[in-house]
Structure formats: structure tokens, C-alpha cells
Simulated assay, not measured.
Amino acid sequence: MSQGDERGYGSEPGGRTEDPYSTVGGTRQTRTRLPGGDDTDGYGRRPARSSRSLVMVVGVVVLLVAAIAFANLGDGRSEKPGGGGKESSAAGAGPTSATGTKPVQGKNGTIAAGFAHDEQGAQSAAANYAVALGSAEMFDKSQRDAILQATYDPQVVPGLQADMAKAYSPQFLTNVGLNDDGSTPTGMTFVSRTVPVGTKVTSQDQDSATVEVWCTGLVGMAGEGSTKPVTATWFTITQKLKWIGEDWKIESSAQTEGPTPVNGDNRASSADDIAAAVEGYGGFTYAR
């Protein structure tokens, strides 16, 4: 994967109403509750509530709390964590629901490791690998080689490292605003981050899985006078995973553009604000 992949744009507007400033029923009207309104008996006094009514209200509240607790207990759960393979339809019924299984605890360098041998584990691995492969560290050869070793099938790593060395050529590095050796120019902050939005398993058996990771990303150079400002992109990474050595590893991956939402009305921040945010806000370990 390289940061030079083409990423496109789409349109899918959203929102609660057509008028973002509407109040009551979109009429731009407001309601004012006056003293002695509907909840009085006409003389400014509230009617006394009977103990029977109070008991009924309490009973309804208890039933609602119990129903919510029961729904949350069963939401997105299965007897097997992550709803592995064909035995569960939880992922199809609610693909954005968390499984509730404890996140991965292991680490391979700075990358999460030790994923569960099931559907949930495959999705978690794919999300975390997408973050690593879309990071700024990929533009440094030694760090890139370590990332590839941590995420890919050992059999494909040597050839992949050679291919990546060609892809991250001095010309490519200068095109993204870096020095030809991959270092960042003085006074600049290079930004390359991938943020998974969601994952989907498209096929799986005991020791292999194909996972799509829908992502948004930031890439560019933050700093005064930068000719490569930081921009947001949207893309989907498809990873073919294989269970190797007690963990999921990538056999191959591909990237396509979108789906891309409509840009919002947010004012673009200054280069200094972007640089401070990238340096000040750390990333996450993603778990399904």
C-alpha cells in the first residue's frame, strides 16, 4: 500500500431536517411554558397525585430499565466471541455493534498482536494493520520494513519489502513534500494517518478471512509555506488474512477509493493547529 493511491469523492448528504435552524416541526417557532399552564387545575394549583398513580409510574420505569438492560445484554453477542465463521449472523445483523469481548492485549513492537482466532479477531487485526500501513512511519525504510514484518505473512515479506523500496522512491518522497531520503524538512510536520471507520468480513473459514476496512485518512505537510497541505481522504482496504503462528497475518491487500461523504462546513484549521493536533493526540488500538 502506498500513499499515492488514488482516492475519490462521493456524495451522500445527511442531517435531521432540511432546515438546520428549525425548532418546533420546522416552523421556526418556539414554545414557552407559562406559569399555571396545562399541568394546573386552573387556579394555579397542581392536582394531587394519588399513591396508586405513583405506583404505576414507578412500575413502568422499572419495566423500561429492565427491558433496556436485557436488550443491551443480548446486543451483538454470541456464544462464541466475535460470532466466528458461519455459526453466527451477529455481524450481518449489526455490523457496527461491538462484541463486548476483551480487546487484544499483545504487542508486536508498536502494533497490536495476539488477535482472537475468530471473526472478531480477524476484523481487529485488519483495522490495526490498516492503521500501521497508513502511518507516517511507512515513509522511513527501516520502520517500514519492521511494519511489514509485523503485519504480513513471512513468506511474502522479502518480495514486498523490495517492491515497497521501489514505490517509496526519492521522487515519490519529494512529491509528498519530504526530503528524498524520507526525512521531514526543517520547520515542517509530515502527517500520514489512517483511521478505520468500520470493518466487514466478506468471507471466512477456519484459518483465513477476507476483511474490508473502510477508512478516512490524513496526509500532507503541516507548516508555514507548505505546498502540500494536509487533506482528508476516504478509501477502503481489502485484506486477505491467514492464521499463521497463532495470529492473523496479511497475505495480500488492495485499496479502492471511497465511500466518501460530502465535506462539512468546518473551517479549515491553520497548519500550526494541525501539527499540534497530530503531535498531541495519539492513536488507538482497534478491537471489534
Rank of each mutant, 00 (worst) to 15 (best):
L133Y: 07
L133M: 09
L133C: 01
G134F: 03
S135V: 09
S135M: 08
A136Y: 09
E137D: 15
F139N: 10
F139D: 05
F139T: 14
F139Q: 12
D140M: 13
K141S: 12
S142N: 14
D145T: 00
D145W: 05
D145F: 01
Q149G: 13
A150F: 02
T151L: 05
D153L: 09
D153V: 06
D153K: 12
V156M: 07
V157P: 04
V157E: 02
P158R: 07
Q161F: 03
D163A: 15
M164Y: 12
K166W: 01
A167I: 14
S169G: 10
S169H: 05
P170N: 12
Q171L: 02
Q171P: 03
L173E: 08
L173I: 04
T174C: 01
V176D: 01
N179C: 03
N179M: 03
N179F: 01
D180H: 00
D180A: 14
D181C: 11
D181G: 12
D181W: 02
G182T: 07
G182D: 06
P185I: 08
G187W: 00
G187I: 07
T189H: 06
F190Q: 01
F190K: 00
S192Q: 15
V195G: 05
V195Y: 09
V195L: 08
P196K: 06
V197I: 01
T199N: 08
T199E: 09
T199P: 08
T199H: 02
K200R: 15
T202H: 07
Q204M: 13
D205G: 13
Q206Y: 08
D207N: 14
D207S: 14
T210L: 00
T210D: 07
T210G: 04
E212K: 13
W214I: 05
C215M: 00
G217P: 04
L218K: 01
G220V: 10
M221C: 02
A222D: 03
G223W: 00
G225M: 09
G225I: 11
T227P: 05
K228I: 07
P229D: 07
P229Y: 03
P229R: 10
P229V: 03
T231V: 10
T231L: 07
A232R: 15
A232D: 12
W234T: 10
W234G: 08
W234A: 08
W234Y: 12
I237K: 13
T238P: 09
Q239N: 11
L241H: 12
L241Q: 13
K242V: 15
I244R: 13
E246I: 04
K249D: 10
I250Y: 04
A254Y: 10
Q255N: 08
T256P: 08
T256E: 11
E257M: 00
E257G: 15
G258E: 06
P259T: 08
T260A: 13
P261R: 06
N263T: 03
N263Y: 09
G264I: 03
G264L: 06
N266P: 02
A268Y: 01
A268R: 10
A268Q: 09
S270P: 06
A271C: 07
